[in-house]
Simulated scan of single mutants.
Amino acid sequence: MKIEEKTSYVLISPEEKTFLDFISIFNNEHDKLKNKHLIIKILDNFNASKENISLFLEYSNEHQNNGTSFVIISKNVNVDDFPETFNIVPTLVEAEDVIDMENIQRDLGF
C-alpha cells in the first residue's frame, strides 16, 4: 500500500495484487490515518464489486463522525448501489473537489 501525504489529504493507492490483500493492509494502517482526509484509489484491475467497496463503508462513517472526509476513486462501480453519504468518484480531481466541498460545509456548520 502506497501512502502519499498531500497538502490537504492522504492519497492511498494499492500496491498489492488483490483487493483482499489491500483491504487487509488498510485495516492494519487505518488507525494511523483516521484523523486525516483520505482518498482511496481503487485500481481498475481489482474486483471493484459492491461487496468489496462496501468494506470501506465503516471507515467512511467513522471519518464523517470525526469531521474528516473519506473518498473512494473507482470508475467501475455504480454509485447508486451505495448510500448517498458514501463518496465514490471516478477521478482524483473529483475526489479533491469532494474534500473541498465537505470542508466548506463543515466550516459553515453543516
Rank of each mutant, 00 (worst) to 15 (best):
N27A: 06
L11Q: 02
N103Q: 15
K75A: 01
I3V: 09
F110A: 11
L20V: 08
P90K: 09
V71Q: 00
G67A: 11
E58D: 13
V93L: 05
T7C: 05
M101Y: 15
I12S: 09
E4H: 09
I99A: 14
L11P: 05
E51S: 06
V93Y: 10
H37L: 04
N87D: 14
G67P: 13
K17F: 08
E58A: 15
I40R: 09
R106E: 15
F110Y: 12
G109I: 05
N87I: 03
K2D: 11
F86Y: 15
I99G: 13
N47E: 09
E58V: 14
T91H: 09
S54M: 15
K50E: 07
S54E: 08
E16H: 12
N28C: 04
I42C: 10
E5I: 07
K41V: 08
I12H: 06
L11N: 11
I3T: 07
N103M: 15
V79G: 05
I40D: 07
V77M: 01
E84N: 02
E96M: 05
V93R: 03
Q105E: 15
L92S: 04
F110T: 12
D100H: 07
V77T: 00
V77Y: 05
N87W: 03
F56R: 13
V10C: 00
I40T: 09
K17A: 04
E5F: 01
N103A: 15
L33K: 02
D44A: 10
K41P: 02
T7V: 08
P14R: 00
M1W: 10
K32Y: 03
K41G: 00
V89L: 00
S8F: 02
E102W: 12
D100V: 12
D44S: 13
P14K: 06
V77K: 00
A48C: 10
S74M: 02
I42M: 10
I25G: 00
N66Q: 11
K36Y: 05
R106M: 05
F26R: 08
K50H: 06
H37Q: 13
I12D: 06
L43V: 07
G109R: 07
S13R: 04
N35S: 09
L57G: 12
L38H: 04
P83R: 13
D97Q: 10
K34W: 02
F46E: 03
N52H: 12
P90N: 08
L33F: 11
V10Q: 02
F26I: 12
T18V: 09
I40V: 11
I12N: 03
I23G: 12
S74H: 02
F86N: 13
E96Y: 03
N28Y: 03
E62Q: 10
N47F: 06
N45D: 09
M1S: 10
F86K: 14
T68P: 04
S74D: 03
Y9P: 05
V93P: 02
I72C: 01
K32M: 00
I42N: 01
K2Y: 03
P90G: 09
I72E: 01
